[in-house]
């Protein structure tokens, strides 16, 4: 049997769709474990990236730190936090926030830093304050890249939120960890398939969202990303 036949057999068993710990419950739990870290990472990453892009100050340090930050092993950080913090919600939240910040920050920075200097000059010439320049000119122009950063981070988080199950929480990782522990390939393959499907949903969601928020004149730029 192939991966897909294992996964399909397991996903289509009606017993797996009802009761506590069923697929719909863990699917929702997984989305729950993904949304909050993404929001927090966006609240940190976008302002930081925009500020660095706008001022140009600390850009080398910030981008390098953000990029090397990506090397932090999420599972290792999770285990470390369990040992030192116990089982508070910070324990699963922080590793996912740490995972999501770099792509958001780096893309926001690149988006704003890449704004054409002539456009900035024009904004200044039109009498805009620095704040107006950022919010009315630079961020809208950077939006396609900011959305790319958010989308990348969302895919990372959705795929990695499976580790919540490592410390006894729910989500789609529950199927993977429990299946591995009891040598049942069905839930392992099925859980992985569901995570992949969720990631595809996330891509679709961001395609729609980008279309809604990016100004019409910039969409062409967004598509080339």
């Amino acid at each position: 049997m192939s991966f897909f036949s294992y996964a399909w057999d397991w996903v289509t068993q009606s017993a797996n769709w009802h009761g506590p710990g069923s697929i719909p419950q863990q699917f929702l739990a997984h989305i729950g474990y993904s949304v909050l870290p993404l929001l927090i990472a966006a609240l940190i990453g976008i302002p930081a990236g925009v500020a660095i892009g706008h001022t140009g100050r600390g850009s080398v340090a910030a981008v390098n730190v953000a990029n090397s930050w990506r090397a932090i092993p999420t599972l290792g950080l999770l285990t470390l936090l369990v040992v030192y913090l116990g089982f508070s919600f910070v324990t699963w939240l922080l590793p996912l926030v740490v995972l999501a910040i770099p792509p958001i920050l780096v893309n926001a920075y690149e988006g704003v830093a890449g704004v054409d200097p002539e456009v900035r000059d024009a904004a200044k010439g039109a009498g805009m304050t620095s704040w107006q320049e950022v919010t009315r000119v630079e961020v809208p122009i950077a939006l396609p890249l900011i959305m790319v950063g958010l989308r990348t981070a969302a895919i990372f988080v959705v795929a990695t939120a499976t580790i919540a199950a490592y410390i006894g929480l729910g989500g789609l990782g529950r199927f993977i960890f429990d299946g591995l522990a009891s040598y049942q390939y069905g839930p392992v393959a099925g859980g992985a398939l569901l995570v992949a499907i969720l990631a595809v949903f996330v891509l679709g969601f961001f395609a729609v969202l980008t279309r809604l928020v990016v100004p019409a004149g910039l969409r062409k730029q967004g598509k080339t990303e």
Binding site: T79, V82, G86, F87, A165, Y166, G168, D178, A181
Partner: peptide, 19 residues
């Protein structure tokens, strides 16, 4: 029942933490 790890750091933390 809380699914944890094989007598590793997660299990020990859960026990000492009162989880």
């Amino acid at each position: 029942f809380d699914p944890l790890d094989e007598s590793g750091p997660i299990t020990l933390a859960a026990l000492t933490d009162g989880k």
